[in-house]
Design a protein around this nucleic acid. Structure first.
Lengths: 365, 365
DNA sequence: CTGTTAGCGCCTTCAC
DNA sequence: GTGAAGGCGCTAACAG
């Protein structure tokens, strides 16, 4: 009825409600906590009315202080710019919703200092657990977490010396899948392009698996494989790396489309474009932008691109991808964390989920 | 020294530190709050040592409870899938960092029910303010916020009946800019494509501005304009709407590239492709995907696409865009909110920031 | 069934 | 300079 004044009034407290309902705080507390059976219908009605009248909402902070658990969990994200991250987040949110948790989302924006700061902040807010999609940092930054600290589960990448559950893509299988696909498609020059991988376990595994499959080739014409490192944080470095790539592409005969088709004779059976295997979406985007700028709209006739991750532009440009089960990864991570919070003590385990190859025009012309 | 046991130990409290340092809680509190001048160097040293030894971190919740301010602000997001949102978020984070605030990020994932739930949750955590990129809902959902409730600032869209600061794109100017660009480029069939806009102020303004510019045309051949509504939440509806579009495109003579150029004669001066003005990136993506599927890789020879928002795939596909100053929007929103939290009482104001037209191949062949 | 009491971890008078 | 005491909003024993 009464219109709200412009100045924000003090929120009602449990004491206010108790007074308004003509009873003690305990009864209110009981009502709030669903111990509804022990309250007389009459009292309950009064309480409900009072709550309604005062627009009362229990103070979660105070509850947390008292109970020692505030239902908050931290979600530390390395890079929200990466579609992977956003998708994982969806799973996290859904799971949190289902389990009555509230995720505190922290975005480190690829800065180690940020990561440190947020981790410490989360600690300060006494989150009950943390899900970490860490930057490639050493254990020390994560000291407050895992093992003896607050429960943690790692997403996508593990951290040396940190004992915690991990959930992510089965990187080995995914990289193998992609490499074999390119091999099967008949490409004979295959580059694996990846950000600096010394610090990041998932990149490491992907790169290793790529090299292993390449060396394990048997049969006819062996395809050449090599790894190109692209440090996206350093534009000049990127430039330099891409130069090597350009040279190789320039040296490769054009795709048969124009030449061979008109000539009729199949004189160059090996004249297939260079294939690029991007270790993740940001790398793939960087490559695509560069190639388009250099080779024009039909860059895909000169280069085949395959990427782990399945960004929204992949379908649009016809780029083949390996889709990660991102939603499941996020969901599972929360479930695991929840178990830990509830006291599960089994030793740390890794959950690897399979990726799905989505073949598009880029690798199947 | 001692290795951390597997079970998480209780965190040290201020009392523990006081005991460890052989002093009272008050001194610890003073130390924590920087009232360092009133402490004897000797005591200060002991406190520092104790804190170090116990790895003590003050409990933010308890502080908040006592002080009545917990430095938490809510950030309610309609759709993290939209690159716009992520970019705004970057600005928000930077500003929060600078102002010592901690954003509690809530993702409604386009569900009104979620929005309601999160808003109530934020209230419950006693956030000091909220930044709302609301769904197209009525005031009632936002009742706890703005006006008499907790301070709020709206991002991108205003809400009827809700008194609060707003910051976002200058939608009118942006839509005019885009429409004029298409007109200047000589397109004579221009469709404005937008999600249902009754509930969302920004969409409304954009659509109105479009129509106004179209009706205000003077001079030679008037271009035809029309509005197409695309309800992305309803795939079948989308399908139906796109059919009308397809018919128009099919009826439009092919671009001069193949026909006219060979014919030599400029028989059809008006034969320009249909131009599509997408009201935002999700719409643009939907259109692009559909057109590519229907008209093949060279769909852009049949349709010109212009979009508000500048997603990462725009550069890749050569689509003209109007870039929003997303980072600034986020940053400014937090600044405004901070002012309100500090008690500024001026009446609600709107801050409109200009968009930037980025012309690419799609509208300038 | 209901109310009283004592804290949760911290900050803030107010004395010493 | 320093410390003791009370209370923020809530819950969890205890009584009645």
């Amino acid at each position: 009825m009464s219109s709200t004044p412009l100045a924000a009034r003090r929120r009602a407290t449990i004491t206010d409600v108790a007074r308004e309902a003509g009873t003690g705080k305990t009864s209110i507390s009981r009502y709030l906590n669903g111990e509804t059976s022990v309250l007389s219908p009459e009292l309950r009605a009064r309480i409900e009315a009072a709550i309604e009248r005062l627009d009362y909402q229990p103070n979660q902070m105070a509850r947390g202080l008292k109970r020692g658990r505030n239902r908050l969990i931290g979600m530390l994200l390395a890079d929200l710019t990466n579609p992977y991250t956003v998708e994982v987040l969806q799973g996290v949110e859904a799971a949190c919703h289902a389990l009555g948790l509230m995720p505190l989302i922290c975005h480190a924006a690829n800065e180690v200092e940020m990561e440190r700061r947020y981790l410490q902040l989360l600690t300060t807010y006494r989150v009950e657990g943390v899900i970490v999609n860490a930057l490639g940092v050493r254990e020390e930054t994560l000291r407050p977490v895992g093992g003896g600290g607050i429960p943690a589960v790692l997403v996508d990448r593990s951290v040396d010396g940190l004992t915690a559950d991990m959930v992510g893509l089965d990187n080995r299988a995914a990289a193998e899948l992609g490499t074999r696909h390119l091999l099967d498609a008949g490409f004979d020059e295959i580059w694996f392009v990846v950000q600096p991988f010394e610090q990041v376990s998932s990149r490491q595994v992907r790169e290793t698996a790529f090299r292993e499959v390449m060396s394990a080739q048997t049969g006819g014409g062996m395809a050449r494989g090599r790894t190109l490192v692209l440090d996206l944080a350093d534009p000049r470095e990127v430039e330099r790396s891409l130069c090597t790539l350009d040279r190789t592409i320039d040296a490769t005969p054009r795709a048969p489309a124009d030449a061979a088709r008109h000539a009729g004779a199949d004189t160059a059976p090996k004249a297939r474009p260079v294939a690029l295997f991007a270790a993740n979406a940001p790398v793939a985007l960087c490559l695509a932008l560069h190639l388009k700028a250099r080779y024009g709209d039909d860059w895909q006739t000169r280069v085949a691109l395959l990427s782990i991750d399945d960004p929204e532009w992949a379908e649009l440009t016809g780029v083949t991808t390996i889709r990660q089960p991102t939603y499941e990864i996020g969901y599972r991570a929360v479930e695991l964390l929840h178990e830990r919070i509830e006291g599960v003590q089994t030793s740390a385990r890794d959950y690897l989920l399979p990726g799905e190859l989505i073949v598009r025009a880029s690798t199947s012309r």
